[in-house]
C-alpha cells in the first residue's frame, strides 16, 4: 500500500444535544480511523456535519427547492469525501427524522461507492437492529459501500470493551476500503452506468450526452435507431 495517503472523512451526526452521545460515537469511530491511518503513515482529515445546526435548512429544503448555505456546504463536503461516518440517534424504533431527512435530500448519485460506517445510539438495546435493518437499506439505495460492522451503542454499551472493539473493527474496514481506492475506481470507470440527472451529484454532474436517443429526438430525428 502506498504511504502518505491523505483521506477525507466526513462525519454526519444526527445527535441533537451538545454534547450528544450520537456525536461522541461518531467521533470515536472517526478518531479510531485517524489513529489507525497514522500507524500506517497515512493521514485523515475529518470534517463534521452536525445536523442539529442544519435542522431549519433541512426542513426548508424538504418543502421547497431551496438549499441553504449550510446544507450546500454539507453537500460539497460529502461530494469530496473519501468516506463517511453516519451516526443517528434511534427514535421510535427508527433512525431520527432529522438524520433520514438529510439523506433524503441528497442527490442519488452523490455518494456512489463511497465507504460508510453506520452507527446509532439508543436508550435500549432493543433498538440494536435499526442500523442493519433500516439504515443499511437507505445507504444501499444511495449505492454506498457500507462496511460489514455496524456500530450500535445503547446506554449500557458505553463502558463496555466490546463497543471499543466494534469501533476498531469498523474503523479498520473503513480504512481498508479507502486504501483500496474502490470508490474512486468505480466512479472513474463506471460513473455513466449509474442514473444521473443534469446537475445531480451536488451540482457537479454536468455531462450532456449529445448522442442519446432523446437528443436524436430533440433534433428532429426519431427515438428509435434509424433504419439502414
Amino acid at each position: 500500500m502506498t504511504t502518505q495517503n491523505q483521506f477525507r472523512v466526513v462525519v454526519v451526526s444526527g445527535g441533537t444535544s451538545d454534547p450528544s452521545s450520537t456525536r461522541m460515537l461518531a467521533d470515536r469511530i472517526a478518531d479510531r480511523v485517524r489513529i489507525l491511518a497514522e500507524e500506517r503513515s497515512e493521514s485523515v482529515a475529518t470534517d463534521v456535519i452536525d445536523l442539529r445546526e442544519l435542522a431549519s435548512e433541512i426542513a426548508t429544503a424538504l418543502v421547497s427547492q431551496l438549499m441553504g448555505p449550510k446544507l450546500t456546504r454539507a453537500v460539497e463536503l460529502l461530494g469530496a469525501a473519501d468516506a463517511v461516518v453516519a451516526s443517528a440517534p434511534v427514535y421510535k424504533a427508527a433512525p431520527s427524522g432529522l438524520f433520514s431527512s438529510f439523506f433524503h435530500l441528497l442527490d442519488n448519485d452523490l455518494l456512489i461507492a463511497k465507504p460508510v460506517v453506520l452507527a446509532a445510539t439508543a436508550g435500549t438495546a432493543r433498538h440494536a437492529l435499526v442500523v442493519d435493518e433500516q439504515m443499511r437499506s437507505l445507504f444501499a439505495y444511495l449505492r454506498t459501500l457500507t462496511v460489514p460492522t455496524s456500530v450500535f451503542a445503547a446506554t449500557e454499551d458505553w463502558n463496555s470493551k466490546e463497543l471499543g472493539e466494534r469501533i476498531t473493527r469498523a474503523a479498520i474496514e473503513l480504512l481498508l476500503l479507502m486504501e483500496s481506492g474502490f470508490a474512486e475506481q468505480v466512479r472513474g470507470e463506471s460513473w455513466k452506468h449509474y442514473q444521473h440527472e443534469y446537475g445531480s451529484a451536488g451540482g457537479t454532474e454536468l455531462e450532456i450526452d449529445l448522442s442519446s436517443d432523446l437528443m436524436r429526438l430533440a433534433t428532429g430525428g426519431s427515438r428509435a435507431k434509424r433504419k439502414p
Partner: peptide, 22 residues
C-alpha cells in the same frame, strides 16, 4: 433542468426561457 429541451431550442433556432424563480 433538461438539456434535451435546450438542445431542441438551439437546433431549431428558437428561444430558450429559464423560469428563474425557484
Amino acid at each position: 433542468r433538461t438539456p434535451e429541451i435546450a438542445e431542441q431550442a438551439a437546433f431549431y433556432g428558437n428561444g430558450y426561457f429559464a423560469n428563474h424563480i425557484f
